[in-house]
Amino acid sequence: MIIDIINRNIVTKIQFTFETNNYSNYALKSTKISSLLNNENILEYLNLTDLSFDDCLLVVKGSNEHILTKEDLQKSIDTYSITENEPIHFQIMTLVQITKYDDEEQIKVPLLNRNITIEELLHLTRKSIDIYKYLATNDTKRILNSNEKLSNLNKTKFILIKENEMCLVLIKKSNDLQPIHVTEEENEKYQRFIVCATIADVNKENQQDILHQYLLYSNDIVPSTDIQLITFQSESLIQFIAIDQNLPITVTIKNTEVNKSIQFNCRLSITIKRLYGIACQLFCLKREYYCLIMNETTLDDDDVC
């Protein structure tokens, strides 16, 4: 074992605080602050393993208390030494980043403690809660309940939305996927999403196995995962059934006006009339102005695929 002996004058005591957790140790005065933040032991002691330092702010405590910038983090810890033999105290704050859905305005909310509800976080945005009523997760676009605790979410990025920017989704399990003795309430899951959320977002939020489980809509189509929920908004409640086998026919319909295609799976018995209705709904088109064409031939409503 090799032990290095160093001059005590070149080391200093440091202290990190995050919420109710504290970590103290000694470090060389010349050590960069950024190097300390890469220490996994510090993260574990402070119970910060579920967050990245990109989601945090570092505050140096004392008479000149302030938030450190990225440039400050490259300075040595001795830069912030106030009194000889006194520890240098850093406090870590969670930085919550919120994007307004309507205009993409960025709102940053620094928090000393994540033990707050979504409703309390809404008030901290300083936006009118009569207009901006909901927060959604940034990854799956699910609307959060007002009483959910931020500390339980392990998330720091959210989207702020209005009432008319959300939709209600109901997912039922098919008989094949239902456990024995399951109640009707357990079989149904109501959730709210931003209208821009896709089928993939719904799958991710519900931890659907996208290779073996599918969402059946209107009992006759399985929309592709890139289709947005806004295309189903003609209904106040968007209903899906979780099934374990995809439907056999894959259909692709192209809207030549906007050069955009949609894809879904359907049953063998589906009619052209029904395909036409689905296409108009998913493209948000008025039925009387369009028709379906395949191989330069207009398809008849009564035909079966």
Rank of each mutant, 00 (worst) to 15 (best):
H66W: 02
I10D: 12
K172H: 10
D244I: 03
V182A: 12
Q191G: 08
Y214A: 03
H89K: 13
Q239V: 09
Q97E: 15
P110G: 04
T137A: 09
I241W: 01
N219G: 05
V60S: 03
T231V: 07
V96W: 00
L153A: 03
L51F: 15
N115L: 06
Y26N: 06
Q74C: 10
I10T: 13
K286D: 14
N187A: 15
I262K: 01
Y45H: 14
Q97T: 15
I88K: 02
Q208A: 12
Y45W: 04
K260N: 09
N219M: 07
A279H: 01
T49I: 14
E65K: 13
S151K: 11
T94N: 13
K155A: 13
E186L: 09
I238D: 01
N219L: 08
A197N: 01
A242K: 11
L285T: 08
N41W: 05
D50A: 12
D226M: 03
T31M: 14
K157W: 04
I278H: 07
I243L: 05
D220V: 05
I10P: 06
S24G: 00
I199M: 03
E71T: 10
N164A: 10
N164M: 14
C56G: 06
L68F: 04
E185Y: 05
I272R: 09
T17Q: 12
T225G: 04
L121R: 03
E84H: 07
Y290S: 11
I161H: 10
L112K: 13
K75A: 10
I98P: 02
R267C: 09
I107S: 06
Q106L: 14
T271D: 10
D244V: 01
Y290H: 15
K108M: 14
V59C: 12
N145S: 15
S224C: 08
D4Y: 06
K108N: 15
K75R: 11
E44V: 12
R126W: 00
A136N: 04
T31Y: 13
